[in-house]
Amino acid sequence: MDETGKELVLALYDYQEKSPREVTMKKGDILTLLNSTNKDSWKVEVKITVNGKTYERQGFVPAAYVKKL
């Protein structure tokens, strides 16, 4: 869990989004878990840094590609 009590997951593999509802992640990324009720895909939040500014983006990733921490 992070400092706000949200559950975290670790990306086990790289994943490139295939639709606007998904998010891209790299192996080793730590993501905030938002919903894990679907056995196939979990909703997560990723933090992306562009030019020194951090943005948050929500979307789905394959459940088999992440592990709860």
Results as ranks from 00 to 15, higher is better:
residue 1 M to Q: 12
residue 1 M to V: 12
residue 2 D to W: 13
residue 2 D to T: 12
residue 2 D to R: 13
residue 2 D to I: 14
residue 2 D to F: 13
residue 3 E to F: 13
residue 3 E to M: 13
residue 3 E to A: 14
residue 4 T to M: 13
residue 4 T to S: 13
residue 4 T to G: 13
residue 4 T to K: 12
residue 4 T to I: 12
residue 4 T to V: 12
residue 4 T to N: 13
residue 4 T to F: 12
residue 5 G to A: 13
residue 5 G to P: 14
residue 5 G to M: 12
residue 5 G to R: 13
residue 5 G to T: 13
residue 5 G to Q: 13
residue 5 G to C: 15
residue 5 G to Y: 13
residue 6 K to Q: 11
residue 6 K to Y: 14
residue 6 K to D: 08
residue 6 K to H: 13
residue 6 K to L: 12
residue 6 K to M: 11
residue 7 E to K: 09
residue 7 E to Q: 14
residue 8 L to S: 07
residue 8 L to Q: 09
residue 8 L to R: 11
residue 8 L to N: 04
residue 9 V to T: 00
residue 9 V to P: 00
residue 9 V to M: 04
residue 10 L to D: 00
residue 10 L to E: 11
residue 10 L to M: 13
residue 10 L to R: 08
residue 10 L to H: 03
residue 11 A to D: 01
residue 11 A to I: 05
residue 11 A to W: 04
residue 11 A to K: 03
residue 11 A to R: 02
residue 11 A to E: 01
residue 12 L to Q: 03
residue 12 L to Y: 02
residue 12 L to W: 04
residue 12 L to S: 01
residue 12 L to A: 02
residue 12 L to K: 03
residue 12 L to I: 09
residue 13 Y to L: 10
residue 13 Y to K: 12
residue 13 Y to T: 08
residue 13 Y to M: 12
residue 13 Y to P: 01
residue 13 Y to S: 08
residue 14 D to G: 04
residue 14 D to M: 04
residue 14 D to W: 05
residue 14 D to S: 07
residue 14 D to F: 06
residue 14 D to K: 02
residue 15 Y to C: 04
residue 15 Y to E: 01
residue 15 Y to Q: 01
residue 15 Y to V: 00
residue 16 Q to E: 14
residue 16 Q to D: 12
residue 16 Q to F: 14
residue 16 Q to N: 13
residue 16 Q to Y: 14
residue 17 E to S: 15
residue 17 E to Y: 04
residue 17 E to K: 13
residue 17 E to H: 08
residue 18 K to Q: 13
residue 18 K to G: 07
residue 18 K to F: 04
residue 18 K to E: 07
residue 19 S to P: 03
residue 19 S to I: 03
residue 19 S to A: 07
residue 19 S to W: 06
residue 19 S to L: 07
residue 19 S to N: 14
residue 20 P to L: 08
residue 20 P to G: 09
residue 21 R to D: 15
residue 21 R to Q: 14
residue 21 R to K: 11
residue 21 R to G: 15
residue 21 R to F: 14
residue 22 E to Q: 05
residue 22 E to D: 06
residue 22 E to S: 06
residue 22 E to N: 05
residue 23 V to Y: 02
residue 23 V to H: 01
residue 23 V to C: 06
residue 23 V to I: 14
residue 23 V to M: 06
residue 23 V to T: 03
residue 23 V to K: 01
residue 23 V to S: 02
residue 23 V to G: 02
residue 23 V to E: 01
residue 24 T to M: 04
residue 24 T to L: 02
residue 24 T to Y: 03
residue 24 T to F: 03
residue 25 M to E: 00
residue 25 M to C: 04
residue 25 M to F: 12
residue 25 M to Y: 02
residue 25 M to S: 02
residue 26 K to E: 03
residue 26 K to V: 07
residue 26 K to I: 07
residue 26 K to Y: 09
residue 27 K to M: 06
residue 27 K to G: 04
residue 27 K to Q: 09
residue 27 K to C: 06
residue 27 K to A: 11
residue 27 K to V: 08
residue 28 G to H: 04
residue 28 G to M: 04
residue 28 G to Q: 00
residue 28 G to Y: 03
residue 28 G to I: 04
residue 29 D to S: 05
residue 29 D to Q: 12
residue 29 D to V: 05
residue 30 I to H: 02
residue 30 I to C: 08
residue 31 L to G: 04
residue 31 L to K: 01
residue 31 L to N: 00
residue 32 T to R: 14
residue 32 T to W: 11
residue 32 T to E: 06
residue 32 T to G: 05
residue 32 T to Q: 09
residue 32 T to M: 10
residue 33 L to E: 00
residue 33 L to G: 00
residue 33 L to M: 02
residue 34 L to F: 02
residue 34 L to D: 00
residue 34 L to I: 15
residue 35 N to S: 12
residue 35 N to K: 05
residue 35 N to F: 06
residue 36 S to C: 14
residue 36 S to K: 07
residue 36 S to N: 07
residue 36 S to G: 10
residue 37 T to S: 14
residue 37 T to L: 09
residue 37 T to M: 10
residue 37 T to D: 15
residue 37 T to R: 09
residue 37 T to N: 12
residue 37 T to V: 09
residue 37 T to I: 08
residue 38 N to M: 09
residue 38 N to W: 05
residue 38 N to K: 06
residue 38 N to Y: 08
residue 38 N to Q: 09
residue 38 N to T: 06
residue 38 N to F: 07
residue 39 K to E: 10
residue 39 K to T: 11
residue 39 K to F: 07
residue 39 K to C: 12
residue 39 K to V: 10
residue 39 K to I: 09
residue 39 K to G: 10
residue 40 D to A: 08
residue 40 D to F: 13
residue 40 D to E: 11
residue 40 D to M: 11
residue 40 D to W: 14
residue 40 D to Y: 14
residue 40 D to R: 10
residue 40 D to L: 11
residue 41 S to R: 14
residue 41 S to I: 14
residue 41 S to N: 11
residue 41 S to H: 15
residue 41 S to L: 15
residue 41 S to A: 11
residue 41 S to Q: 14
residue 42 W to L: 03
residue 42 W to I: 02
residue 43 K to D: 02
residue 43 K to I: 14
residue 43 K to L: 15
residue 44 V to M: 00
residue 44 V to T: 00
residue 44 V to Q: 00
residue 44 V to F: 03
residue 44 V to K: 00
residue 44 V to L: 03
residue 45 E to M: 15
residue 45 E to G: 12
residue 45 E to R: 10
residue 45 E to T: 09
residue 46 V to G: 04
residue 46 V to A: 08
residue 46 V to H: 08
residue 46 V to P: 00
residue 46 V to E: 00
residue 46 V to C: 09
residue 46 V to S: 06
residue 47 K to R: 13
residue 47 K to N: 08
residue 47 K to C: 12
residue 47 K to E: 07
residue 47 K to I: 13
residue 47 K to D: 02
residue 47 K to P: 05
residue 47 K to G: 04
residue 47 K to W: 08
residue 47 K to M: 10
residue 48 I to D: 04
residue 48 I to H: 07
residue 48 I to L: 09
residue 49 T to R: 09
residue 49 T to K: 09
residue 49 T to N: 09
residue 49 T to E: 10
residue 49 T to V: 13
residue 50 V to P: 00
residue 50 V to Q: 09
residue 50 V to L: 11
residue 50 V to E: 10
residue 51 N to Y: 06
residue 51 N to D: 13
residue 52 G to V: 02
residue 52 G to A: 03
residue 52 G to M: 04
residue 52 G to K: 03
residue 52 G to T: 04
residue 52 G to W: 04
residue 52 G to S: 04
residue 53 K to G: 07
residue 53 K to L: 13
residue 53 K to C: 12
residue 53 K to Q: 13
residue 54 T to E: 10
residue 54 T to S: 10
residue 55 Y to H: 10
residue 55 Y to L: 11
residue 55 Y to P: 00
residue 55 Y to K: 07
residue 55 Y to E: 11
residue 55 Y to C: 10
residue 56 E to R: 15
residue 56 E to D: 11
residue 56 E to Q: 14
residue 56 E to H: 15
residue 56 E to S: 15
residue 57 R to N: 04
residue 57 R to Q: 07
residue 57 R to S: 05
residue 58 Q to K: 07
residue 58 Q to F: 06
residue 58 Q to P: 02
residue 58 Q to D: 05
residue 58 Q to H: 07
residue 58 Q to L: 05
residue 58 Q to R: 10
residue 59 G to D: 01
residue 59 G to L: 06
residue 59 G to I: 06
residue 60 F to S: 03
residue 60 F to M: 07
residue 61 V to I: 08
residue 61 V to K: 00
residue 61 V to F: 02
residue 61 V to T: 00
residue 61 V to E: 00
residue 61 V to N: 01
residue 62 P to K: 06
residue 62 P to G: 03
residue 63 A to T: 05
residue 63 A to L: 02
residue 63 A to Y: 02
residue 63 A to D: 03
residue 63 A to N: 03
residue 63 A to C: 07
residue 63 A to R: 08
residue 64 A to V: 10
residue 64 A to D: 13
residue 65 Y to K: 08
residue 65 Y to H: 06
residue 65 Y to I: 09
residue 65 Y to E: 04
residue 65 Y to W: 06
residue 66 V to A: 02
residue 66 V to F: 07
residue 67 K to I: 14
residue 67 K to D: 07
residue 67 K to W: 06
residue 67 K to G: 06
residue 68 K to Q: 07
residue 68 K to R: 12
residue 68 K to I: 14
residue 68 K to V: 12
residue 69 L to A: 03
residue 69 L to F: 08
residue 69 L to H: 04
residue 69 L to P: 01
residue 69 L to G: 01
residue 69 L to N: 02
residue 69 L to D: 01
